[in-house]
Write a protein that binds this DNA or RNA. Structure first.
Lengths: 229, 229
DNA sequence: TGAATTACTGACACCGTGTCAGTAAAGTCG
DNA sequence: CGACTTTACTGACACGGTGTCAGTAATTCA
């Protein structure tokens, strides 16, 4: 009897928590739509609330403020990005090919989810004062690390299969590649009009950037044959 | 007499215009100080006005709004940057060395003028709807082109002196290098704490990035000797 | 000097944010 | 099923910043 009651209570609680999570996600959905249309700066919480069919005050019950909402979007972005990069890497034959695939997957991601890329750009440009241990910001940071780990795994794979030269600090290389790729995509996106003006397509530019940025990873001379200890 | 009068009037007008320009610059000075302390988002026009010792309304007489003020800062940033890059390039012996020097000069610039780099980051991340011909934004864009021209000149020099491989679209390469470098610096700045955590210094990271990013420019094999048409 | 132009400001209307007291709804238990 | 508690939700508010404008002070010109 006590068991039944307890079970029943915990059922309700479970259900309520699920619904809460669902609502939370719905609010983020609404925020994404509004941010995409209006941009992060000019987007109004009122619009987010209206789109989520709730009052503005309730939004503030789920998210402390606009910045937290943006961080929630970043987190989603990074999770999806990690999946995409991992999938792209999994389909590539060699470690070196994986790196290229990851670069192109990032480009495709930016193309498919402009809002997510914009969110990451903002996050990347934002200099944090101090990142509290339990904060949302910390969670986003960690989601970022998870993304880098995909690149690092590819680097390690490449070193194993001989398609990538020996590097002593894979994280260093991963961050460099990340910075390069992100920077290039950002230019391709925001300077698209200018690129056209000087007779370049964004795709051409990005293709060049990837080739250019990953070239330095290949082994110096030996064609990978032999060289076993 | 008519001449004298005209001259006198034009003198006053000249003086007034000069003073106006001076005040304009003073407002930008104030804005820079405020932006540096508070960040672009949270900075208040009130503070800019107070620091410039004028009323808030007057600021709006010189600049349409906060965004225009930010663009003015961007323009300054790009002009100074161009000077720095050009100076660095001038001191380097070969075209390839010039490219490296330009990269390091950009890093030094970002280190010396964090606000300017932040301003450029914002500008870079901002996707413009449409850039009107006479607008401030267009002026900033053109200042950006002037910066790229420094890189292009170095590339041409390198192709001439044989330290850089033949590239068919220098602007493509210049933009790539710009994107790479900017992206890397941005990471070094905003992720400095994280870099420390994984045992990397920002300098080490950036040094690596420059070497990595410019490596692909060197000629394939021939040691630059001979090869004249 | 007085008239005209220009530089400047105080005060206002507007809008968005974040908060809070209070209401509606759902869950708990006899 | 009611009474009682807990949780979900909202309307209305105070606050603060932006951009504007009518009006005043200062300069220039004749």
């Amino acid at each position: 009897m006590s068991r039944a009651r307890t079970a029943s209570r915990s059922h309700s609680r479970q259900r309520r928590d699920d619904e809460k999570e669902l609502r939370r996600e719905a609010i983020i959905d609404a925020a994404e739509a509004v941010f995409a249309r209006a941009g992060f700066e000019t987007a109004k919480m009122e619009d987010v609330a209206r789109r989520a069919r709730i009052s503005r005050a309730l939004v503030y019950l789920y998210f402390k403020n606009k910045a937290e909402l943006q961080l929630a979007v970043c987190r989603r972005a990074l999770n999806i990005l990690r999946e995409r990069l991992a999938a792209a890497a999994a389909a590539a034959p060699s470690g070196y090919a994986q790196i290229g695939a990851i670069g192109h997957a990032y480009i495709a991601f930016a193309d498919e989810f402009p809002l997510y890329f914009a969110a990451l750009s903002r996050f990347e440009a934002h200099r944090p004062e101090s990142v509290a241990p339990g904060s949302t910001e910390r969670a986003v940071l960690e989601a970022g690390v998870a993304v880098h780990e995909v690149t690092i795994a590819a680097l390690r794979q490449g070193m194993r299969d001989g398609t990538i030269r020996r590097v002593d600090k894979p994280m260093l290389v991963a961050l460099t590649l990340w910075g390069f790729t992100h920077g290039a995509i950002q230019i391709a996106q925001t300077k698209a009009a200018f690129l056209e003006e000087v007779g370049l397509s964004a795709d051409e530019f990005l293709g060049h950037a990837i080739r250019f940025g990953t070239g330095g990873l290949q082994p110096a001379a030996a064609p990978a044959r032999g060289k076993r200890k």
